[in-house]
Design a protein around this nucleic acid. Sequence first.
RNA 1: CGGGGCGUAGCGCAGUCUGGUAGCGCACACGGUUCGGGACCGUGGGGUCGGAGGUUCAAAUCCUCUCGCCCCGACCA
Length: 432
Amino acid sequence: MRFTNMFIPTLRETPSDAEAVSHKLMLRAGYVRQLAAGLYMYLPLGWRVMAKINAILKEEMDAIGAQEISLPVLHPAELWQQTGRWDEIKEEMFRLKDRGGRDMCLGMTHEEVMTYLASREIRSYRQLPQSWYQIQTKLRDEARPKSGILRTREFIMKDSYSFDADEAGLDKSYELHAKAYHRIFQRCGLEFYQVQSDPGMMGGKGAHEFMAPSPAGEDEAVLCVSCGYAANVELAGSISPGERFKAEPHDIHAAKTGDGCPKCGAALKIERCIEIGNIFKLGTKYSLPMKAFYLTEDGSERPLIMGSYGIGPARIAAAAIEQSHDGDGMIWPASIAPFDAEIIPLNIKDENTAKTAEALYNALNEAGIETLMDDRDERAGVKFKDADLIGIPKQVIIGERNLKEGLVEVKDRRTKEALKVKPDEVLKAFKS
RNA sequence: CGGGGCGUAGCGCAGUCUGGUAGCGCACACGGUUCGGGACCGUGGGGUCGGAGGUUCAAAUCCUCUCGCCCCGACCA
């Protein structure tokens, strides 16, 4: 892609209402713009990152046998009334009436609709297990949207739901998802923890959250470096030093750094985190009220045993920026960067520069390396600043000075190390 | 929803206390000089000062109401 054909409105100054690093940089680098509180517009660069993340999500979901489907955002109230959540949930749910006066709501999550589908279509144990997922819009009328893209009223979520014949099946589906989530976050280049969490209103009997450490996060994880115990502070029952091994499981209170680990007694560490994913064992919380039953081998009727699993791709993007940036801008992990490489011809009006850039651009694209070429007629400084801001991992700098010796520069955005190579060696330099 | 802050050009801000009819930097357009880390000079376009009502000869400025955005907290499926 050529810079002049792509809308990349970079800003020299940070809009004053941005606080979180990821928010500031996404605005400055021209990845997103705000429409209203908690509502964001993704611009070409931002949307490319989302597409990269979603592609990874799909690959890993497909790899565990989950199947992609798509459900409506607009839901009839009846489904939510059946599970009781129509009344349990308050202002956080967007509600409306259709022209016939029927109560409707905008989906904040899809347990109801998924269970409805399963209840009508799954008849027999022979059809189990099933895992269905979608990457789709959720709406929540948040009391306080914040930190840019981190907490919004409308957001995209990868949500999957598993249907099993029994608890053992659920355990398996749950494990599969947990492992897939590990691979996803690893592939996205994030530092993260899997921690125990409170199942909360989702109901059910077990839950974990995936937490990306970052000061911009809203959650706190309690971690034991000694035995590996990890939990959300909301859940972590801890004991104070000197009272070892006397943790009261029901005594749930906020743990503090230095408290004793409930498992091994060692000193706990607390870290601020962004919740990037969660997994829940739902059991029959939705299948019972919605009558989602199947027939067993001996002909008896049993409720489906369910799990639900969510990932917020925008939070992955924000967490990646929070965890990987410097004073000049973003530093994308290669896997989710909007482009693999950026060609920077310093003086586009120089014939040799332009020719070399053009040839390299074609060669890289042909080699399957997604390349952005800054073909703007701008000064070198502007291009350098924008390139660093935008954060594409590899930069290929083409300047008249080096070109006289038949060389171009391959620079790593993260380390800032630059290698001078011949144009036809650029590909090789990427691999090293 | 409680507490705090802020709304003046696309972005960052000054002007508000002490009313006199809107300004600076960046960005943008044009011309020239520049050209490896956000150039310089000149010219130019762009603003119902968030909105409504009120006070006044006169309101960005004072008063009332209202809308919006951000931060802290509560909440968070």
